[in-house]
Design a protein around this nucleic acid. Structure first.
Lengths: 202, 202
DNA sequence: AGTCATACTAACAATCATGTCAATAACGGA
DNA sequence: TCCGTTATTGACATGATTGTTAGTATGACT
C-alpha cells in the first residue's frame, strides 16, 4: 500500500510506549488496547504486536518503562541539590509521585490484580535505589534514636499521601471542602510538618 | 427450562451489586463484566442488563453503592464513640478508607476517566456529611488560629495517606523497606503525629 | 382457579479486541 | 546493484463482551 515508515526496534518501542503512556493518562485503562495505541502512533496494530508479542506484553513493558521513568525523576529530584532541606526534598518527592500520571500508574497496577506483578525487575530496581536513599534522608532529619526507621516511616507517609492525592486528590478536596489554594500549598505544609514529627521511640 | 429464582427488584440489585463489589476486590476492573457478575449470582447476564440497563449502568450503580457504603462506614467509625480522641478518630478514618476495597474503588473511579463522574449524588452526599464533620474534628484538635482550615488539612492528609496506602501500600512498603510490623503500626503512629502538627499560621 | 405484571432466560446478532499469517517494502551490507 | 533481513501491513480467524428479543415461569392479587 502507501508509504511505510520504517523504524529501528528501539525507536518503535519507544514511540509506542510514549503513546501508551499518553493514553493511560488521558483515557485511563481503556486507552491501553493495541488498536488505539497503534493508531496514535500512525501504525498498524500488528506492528505493536510484532514488537511486544501481545497486549499484555505491551502493558508490562509500559509498567517497566514508567517505573524506570518515575525512578529517574525521583533520583533526579533528590540529587539536583544535595544540600536541600528535608522538607524540600520530600516536597519534591511528593510532586514527582503525584504528578505526571505516576499515581495513576500505581493505581492501575494495584487494580490489575495479580497479572501485573510488581515483584519483578522494576520493583527490585526501585527497592535497590530506595535502600541507598533512606540513609541520605535519615541523615537530613532531626537526630533521634532509630533514625532510619523514622526516615522510612516519613518517606512512606509522604509517598502514600502523594499517591492518594494523585489518585483521588480532586475528589477529596471537593468532599472535604479544602479550597484549591490550600491544596496547592498542601505539599509545602506537609513538608514543614516533617520537622514536628517524632520517632516512635522519642 | 429449569427452576428459576425470582427476586424482588431490590433484592436482585442488591445481590448483583454485592457480587460486583466482590469481583472488583478480587479480580480488579476486569471482573466487572456482566457475564461474570451474573455467573457469580447464579443468574443469566440478561438479568443483570434487565436491572441496570447496560454494563455502564451496573458499574455506575456500583460506584454509588460503594460510595454510600463508604460514607456509612466513615460516619459509623466516627460516631461510635463521640468522646474519642482525635488521634483515634483519624486512626479509624484511616482504617475505613484503606480497608475493604474502598481505596480500590477510588482508584478505579480515578482510572476510569471522565465517564465515571464523581460530581454526582454520591459526591454531594459525602460533601454534605463532611461539612458537618469538620467542625467536630476541629473542636477536638489542639486550639490554634484558623482551627477549621487546619482540621481540613489534617483530614485531607489522613485521607490521602489512607488511599495511597490502600492502593499501593504493599508495593510501597516493599520498595521502601518498611517491615510489615511497622506498616501495621503506621496508622497509630500517624494518629499520634496529629498532636505535633501545627497550623500554617502558628 | 384464573389472570396479570414482570423477573427471568435462551438464542441470536453485532461489535470489538486479540492474535495469526502471508505478502510487501524499506534499509543496510556485500 | 543485488540481496538478505526484518519492520510493516492488510486480511482473516477467533473469542469475548455487549446488547436485543421473543417467549417462559413465577408470584401476587382477585
Amino acid at each position: 500500500m502507501s508509504i511505510r515508515k520504517r523504524r529501528s526496534p528501539e525507536e518503535a518501542r519507544q514511540e509506542i510506549l510514549a503513546a501508551a503512556q499518553d493514553r493511560l493518562r488521558l483515557f485511563g485503562i481503556d486507552g491501553l488496547n493495541v488498536v488505539d495505541v497503534a493508531k496514535a502512533c500512525g501504525m498498524s496494530h500488528a506492528t505493536v504486536l510484532h514488537h511486544f508479542g501481545s497486549t499484555g506484553g505491551m502493558r508490562h513493558a509500559l509498567v517497566t518503562y514508567m517505573t524506570a521513568q518515575l525512578l529517574e525523576d525521583i533520583i533526579a529530584s533528590l540529587q539536583q541539590n544535595p544540600s536541600l532541606e528535608p522538607s524540600q526534598v520530600l516536597h519534591s518527592l511528593f510532586h514527582t509521585l503525584s504528578a505526571g500520571g505516576h499515581a495513576k500508574l500505581l493505581a492501575w497496577v494495584s487494580l490489575a490484580g495479580n497479572e501485573m506483578a510488581p515483584q519483578e525487575a522494576p520493583g527490585a530496581l526501585l527497592q535497590h535505589h530506595f535502600n541507598a536513599l533512606i540513609p541520605v534522608i535519615a541523615g537530613r532529619l532531626p537526630p533521634s534514636p532509630r533514625r532510619e526507621e523514622h526516615a522510612r516511616r516519613v518517606v512512606f507517609l509522604i509517598a502514600a499521601a502523594a499517591i492518594g492525592s494523585g489518585v483521588g486528590g480532586n475528589l477529596l478536596a471537593t468532599v472535604i471542602g479544602l479550597p484549591q489554594a490550600e491544596v496547592d500549598h498542601f505539599p509545602d505544609w506537609l513538608g514543614q510538618q516533617i520537622y514536628h514529627m517524632v520517632s516512635k521511640d522519642d
